[in-house]
Design a protein around this nucleic acid. Structure first.
Lengths: 239, 239
DNA sequence: ATCGCCGAAGTGTGATCACAAAAATAGGCC
DNA sequence: GGCCTATTTTTGTGATCACACTTCGGCGAT
């Protein structure tokens, strides 16, 4: 099954968006959504074929993703794959997320409008629906929408990109963990508290809620990675 | 003058290091050291010619640097250049550095050895020498060595790379500021305090010193960027 | 049946060519 | 002399080819 695709919705032949940007968007979307599992090998030519482009723009997109540590290139071996998460790396990711994302939420508070609140309620409703149906994919999509609706508001490019990079690295593993435990045990998110605090303009409360929300989600993953002491190196075929 | 070069010290024809990695190293070095000023346009073919390689590996290295925001590609315009620093971006960089680098210093404290202390004293001595001679290039090199000697010790890959990326973005501008004001007014660094705290294993003190060191350096740049209200868009030629 | 070897297929990397678009330059007009 | 325009050059982008190396497949020997 092909998990990446190019939605060539925009105009005909005269696209202003470069192909390698489209490939990058498609791949990052797939990675954040956890569509590509950790350790899954990918290849330039295969991706290029699936996306209907030449290997060239794929190389550039992949080079970008490697720089963001969303993909890795094993050293002696020359295979390209999604990196695995060690406990050490996950803890750093957790710490970094707790630095960046509460700050983004804090900054966003001052720029909240009624439209944003409306949008956030919709996103949160989608999250609850997905949880009810046990749809992990829909949950991850809706949760991402909720968070980045806030982050986008902060108008802090550097922090925003840092957050996106962090999600890019966590995504594949988050999908594995959530898929393994099911959506039932997912933490009670703090989205409602956050929306209320955003409405009243209480930036500190927004920041705190965001930190708590992230903390619980990452704690779950930390438990999961500690549990899987030594996952037997079973050979994985194409999923 | 060519500011980037490939030191092909390693073995003959069978290099294990990829060319695009060497190009990347050369370019990042030049950027962190501020060898390439902000807004300076660079081109793939020119770089490739100067480095004696084909444009191909340069493209990959540059794509990586663009992902790290050490270079930018103006949107409609198709010129590649070193990005400028707005006050907003600088403040985010300052905040992020205060997140990451004190933490790295904190983590490094537990792993200090006598060799490291020796190395740090040498680095700090080089810093003082450079300050005495008013050699901005030597100062930036020595200061970088000092900081990253500590960061490397922390054994925290993610944080380390975050710090490196932040320096990559600050480097070109730092060079401009320091070059403009001379080394005389450079802040009294907290390197001595830091070394002492590292020796006694007082991680909190190390963290605090690092935060102070970064804060003062960045404050200088913040003042400088506020001062230059609207630098007249004088056309710059090759430096 | 199992192990080892060898060939075929696939991998990332680098070089080269083609092309549209933007910058730079030169030229002409006011 | 200054400004606009047309031509030339340079730019990034994408495609294609060549190459060294790894991986996987199947055949044969023990």
């Amino acid at each position: 099954m092909v998990v990446v695709s190019l939605e060539s919705v925009s105009g005909g032949s005269l696209n202003e968006a470069k192909i390698h940007d489209q490939v990058y968007d498609a791949l990052s979307e797939a990675l954040i959504q956890g569509k590509i599992p950790p350790l899954k090998p990918v290849s330039l030519r295969t991706l290029a074929h699936n996306l209907g482009v030449s290997p060239m723009p794929v190389r550039e997109a992949v080079r970008r993703l490697i720089a963001e540590k969303a993909l890795e290139l094993q050293p002696s071996n020359k295979r390209l794959r999604v990196p695995d998460l060690t406990e050490k790396r996950l803890m750093q990711l957790m710490t970094a997320r707790q630095w960046v994302e509460p700050e983004l939420a804090y900054l966003a508070t001052a720029r909240v409008t009624k439209d944003v609140i409306k949008r956030l309620r919709e996103d949160d409703a989608a999250v609850m629906t997905a949880l009810g149906k046990g749809d992990v994919s829909a949950y991850m999509q809706a949760n991402q929408d909720f968070h980045f609706s806030i982050y986008r508001l902060a108008d802090a490019d550097l922090f925003y990109d840092m957050a996106r990079t962090l999600w890019l690295q966590v995504g594949p593993f988050m999908r594995v963990v959530f898929g393994r435990m099911g959506t039932v045990h997912l933490p009670k998110d703090h989205h409602q508290d956050m929306i209320r605090a955003l409405e009243t303009g209480d930036a500190e409360a927004v920041k705190t809620s965001m930190a708590a929300d992230i903390h619980e989600g990452m704690e779950l993953m930390l438990d999961a990675i500690k549990a899987q002491v030594a996952p037997e190196p079973k050979r994985r075929r194409r999923g």
